[in-house]
Design a protein around this nucleic acid. Sequence first.
DNA 1: ATCGCGCCCCGCCAGG
DNA 2: GGCCTGGCGGGGCGCG
Length: 329
Amino acid sequence: MCKNPAMSRSPRHRVALLALDGVVAFDLGTPPQVLGAARDEAGHQLYEVRVATPGATPVVSSAGFTVATEHGLEALAWADTVVVAGIEGDRTDVPVDPEVVGALRSAAGRGARTVSICTGAFVLAGAGLLDGRPATTHWYWATRFRRMYPQVLLDPDVLFVDDGDVLTSAGVAAGVDLCLHLVRADHGAAVANRAARRCVVPPWRAGGQSQYIEHHVPAQPDSSTAPARAWALAHLDQPLELAELARRSSMSVRTFTRRFRDETGESPGRWLTQQRVDRARHLLETTDLPVDSVARHSGFGTAAALRAQMATALGVPPSAYRATFRAAV
DNA sequence: ATCGCGCCCCGCCAGG
DNA sequence: GGCCTGGCGGGGCGCG
């Protein structure tokens, strides 16, 4: 791990966070906080985040306070990744400043990764960076987005969209999910999970928008335990033993658990119960099945087991969970 | 409520 | 030596 100390440490990933007038205050905090929480084994930060505004002039945030930064658009030329924070919804139809468009386009042109949070997608789209590509934005502004940018393949029902060098996320807090996704893509699940823990990201955000829970943790493509996970998902309602999953992957139990942990950031058992809780949540939201059969269909033998798992995972009993969503929709 | 049993998780270490 | 593997054992947790 830290056999060669500072010398071999790779340079930090450079991130420019672009704040325009009316910037969503929350989005301004997300990348510094979440990416800043990403550390290597020795505790060194893996990202350097600079907040930039056009001309390094102060901008007024959605919360009313003024944002003063040291960096102008030249930070976009410096960055490996450019993140555009959301702007207040009623400003989304204001044409994007040509200088901003130019800076974004040249950053993208030289291969920088471009990312948006929330309504920041309007800015990327305004710069033409989303043309013909899949993207998402805050669900509330989806209609306007479609009208303004019909050439973008908008999917308003997901937390975020990863299209390689262009990534977009849904409203406000989905920026947290996207930043964690970036960390996961750049440095693996273990680092991302440590960052999440450091940020004390809650496992469940109360409220409606139940469709969003479908999109959980994206799988690492080159992953030796992925087939086992797929198989497990297809047989969630049955008892699944670690030994069986390992055997199906033709690995010893020890190697399987070790790889699984490396690839997903979680132990097989924890992952399994998480998937089962997700399945149960989905059934509670979309069916009228009694809690008892929800428990069976999601692989918890009994309602008691389901209740216990939901209590620890979400802090909410099944019936209350269902009631929340029935009331919310 | 408690205990016992089985499974899981993971550090440790030996071997390829 | 470095890397990956896999067996072992103890501590932990869920469940009956």
